[in-house]
């Protein structure tokens, strides 16, 4: 009797699980699902909330999310022909590589790129957001005078203390070194890597590499590395949290992320539709900027950004006037591998 009850209970539970699984897959099969993939965390939630949810509801589309972006996974999905991702946020050098290798769909002509910056658009990718590599500094250590140029950032006599750089070759360290050495911004690319290493040699024992955004905030706000080549949004959020840090905008380098659609995605069509919406969604981009201090990418979106946040973005006119250049990711797509290796060898010496 008891065993009979147990068997019934197991059977009913199993049937329920199967039923719910079936209903789940039905929703996914009708072609109205978009899987958005980004770097994860609160940032991604805010992003989807600001730029996708209202649009999805209006068009009867189910939004799914996955994170973090993983280039190896993307390539594996494309090569196996089973792509579960729709729109993926990537670094622009990877967007170039993916486009060249046929891992990304070409974008529809229905996507109106007229509001975007030309340099941030390719045939496979549109920009997601913009940020800047600024001189982040500790305002206690440098209360009266702080470095305002990359040349001063490299001047360990005048401004003693450790300097933080992102540990990856695309972290704009080479660009900063060359600017510090007197190369004009418009003559930066192709980078003279030898010359950059010579300049980096002059401060090598003062360099600290960081891996994550949290590490970056910790290094500069604790004063462990009172100077850091920073991501403007990270410094801003640390400052808002009461840490003694600030961005120096002079000579900053502009960077961005891009959306791509993996080749062969079953969601390609709906992803194209969403991107067409995204690049015109000025208010959605502004809402995301308000939440995260990443700059919107479409002209006109700044009008909708909270003025307190707007002045902390690279797209604010007073900041944009101080820009040195936009990082050239076509260069990096071609040289990332080789320069990464050189960087590892140099750092390990």
């Amino acid at each position: 009797m008891r065993i009979g009850q147990l068997v019934t209970a197991v059977g009913v539970t199993g049937a329920m699980v199967m039923l719910s699984a079936c209903s789940g897959s039905n929703a996914a099969e009708d072609g109205k699902t978009l899987t958005i993939v980004a770097w994860g965390g609160e940032d991604q939630k805010a992003h989807v909330r600001a730029t996708a949810e209202a649009w999805a509801e209006e068009n009867g589309i189910t939004i799914k999310q996955d994170s973090p972006t993983d280039y190896a996974k993307l390539r594996a999905q494309v090569e196996s022909g089973k792509v579960s991702w729709g729109a993926v946020e990537v670094e622009p050098n990877f967007a170039h590589t993916a486009c060249d290798n046929g891992w990304a769909e070409k974008l529809d002509s229905s996507i109106d790129t007229s509001l975007l910056k030309d340099v941030e658009v390719t045939e496979c990718a549109v920009p997601v957001l913009e940020y800047a590599f600024t001189i982040g500094y500790n305002t206690d250590t440098f209360a009266h005078d702080h470095p305002t140029t990359w040349a001063e950032f490299f001047d360990v006599e005048k401004f003693p203390g450790k300097r933080g750089f992102w540990k990856y070759a695309t972290g704009a360290m080479f660009e900063a070194a060359l600017l510090a050495d007197g190369v004009k911004p418009e003559e930066l690319y192709p980078l003279d890597i030898e010359r950059a290493f010579e300049k980096l040699d002059t401060i090598k024992d003062q360099i600290v590499f960081y891996e994550t955004g949290e590490q970056q905030q910790q290094l500069v706000s604790s004063g462990e590395a009172p100077l850091i080549q920073a991501w403007n949004g990270r410094i801003f959020s640390a400052a808002q949290a009461g840490q003694p840090v600030a961005n120096e905008w002079n000579e900053h380098l502009v960077s961005y992320d891009q959306w791509i659609i993996p080749k062969g995605s079953a969601q390609a069509e709906v992803a194209q539709e969403w991107l067409a919406h995204y690049v015109k969604d000025l208010e959605g981009q502004a809402e995301y900027a308000n939440a995260t201090a990443y700059a919107p990418v479409s002209e006109g979106a700044m009008e909708f950004v909270d003025p307190e946040v707007a002045k902390e973005l690279p797209t604010a006119p007073e900041n944009a006037a101080k820009m040195s250049t936009v990082v050239d990711y076509a260069y990096w797509a071609e040289h990332y591998d080789e320069v990464s290796k050189r960087l590892s060898e140099w750092a390990a010496q």
Binding site: Y71, A72, Y336, D337
Partner: peptide, 10 residues
């Protein structure tokens, strides 16, 4: 990991 996910030299 760097070779696998970063530069994709599988």
């Amino acid at each position: 990991v760097q070779q696998l996910s970063g530069v994709l030299r599988w």
